[in-house]
């Protein structure tokens, strides 16, 4: 029987130190037992356990089979019954997009968000490329579809990195969001102008960019001045 010299409480025979103040237990009468740990039955188990997670794999498998069956059925129908155009390609492409989006949700939940976003971008590009077979022209794909998807994917990845890796608060997330929105509009108009007119003449995106820039400057000022930041938090707290 040992007592903590600081707290005055009796300690369990297995205790190596007082759980309240971390003072080591040193009982001259039971030194041998303490060193060897003999007869010391801890009151709690030593093994930790993990939380049992919900098994979504079955649902993931079901969804995968449904998506696969839809794609296969449409392909067969297109090949054997409704043969006029390659309409099934758009359905098959849509199924592929849906499946890739479902991967991190149901099939492989540990997948990094950056990899998931990259896969999403790639599968959308592939889907758009498939559509070119239906439309009969690839010019729009290389001029608009591919660059816009690449731009959206890139900006989303950068936004996600900022939110996950940099300090996160209501103000900083707003800053990332406005910056991303401004750059996205700018990029979209530049790509559209270049594709349609062969030159870049900014109009509406300049307005959006200006508004976003003003908001960004206001947010940066708030973030850099603690007094101002606290004032805003106080007034806008919820």
């Amino acid at each position: 029987m040992s007592y903590c010299v600081n707290c005055g409480v009796e300690l369990d025979a297995s205790a190596q130190k007082c759980p309240l103040c971390n003072t080591p237990v040193w009982n001259p009468g039971e030194l041998e037992k303490q060193v060897s740990g003999k007869d010391a039955m801890p009151p709690f188990p030593r093994e930790k356990s993990q939380v049992e997670t919900a098994n979504r794999k079955d649902f993931g498998l079901l969804m995968s089979m449904v998506v696969l069956a839809t794609a296969a059925t449409c392909g067969i129908l297109n090949a054997l019954v409704f043969r006029g155009t390659l309409w099934s390609l758009s359905v098959i492409g849509a199924c592929a997009v849906l499946w890739v989006i479902l991967i991190p949700v149901m099939i492989y939940t540990k997948q990094s968000i950056y990899v998931s976003l990259l896969y999403d971008g790639i599968v959308v590009v592939l889907y758009l490329y498939i559509l070119t077979f239906q439309v009969g022209s690839r010019e729009w794909f290389f001029g608009l579809g591919l660059p816009i998807t690449a731009l959206v994917t890139f900006i989303t990845e950068v936004f996600t990195v900022c939110v996950c890796r940099l300090p996160r608060s209501f103000l900083t997330v707003s800053l990332y969001l406005f910056t991303g929105a401004g750059l996205l509009c700018l990029g979209l108009e530049m790509l559209i102008d270049w594709y349609l007119m062969g030159e870049i003449a900014l109009s509406w995106s300049a307005v959006v960019l200006t508004v976003c820039a003003i908001l960004d400057i206001a947010l940066i000022t708030m973030l850099s001045r603690r007094r101002l930041r606290n004032e805003v938090r106080r007034r806008l707290h919820f």
């Binding site: 007082c18 759980p19 009151p43």
Partner: peptide, 17 residues
């Protein structure tokens, strides 16, 4: 627990820490 000990109560401690 120190307060309880101070008030003359004998306390035995067990923990999973």
């Amino acid at each position: 627990f120190r307060r309880l000990v101070k008030d003359g109560i004998h306390v035995k401690i067990e923990s999973n820490r």
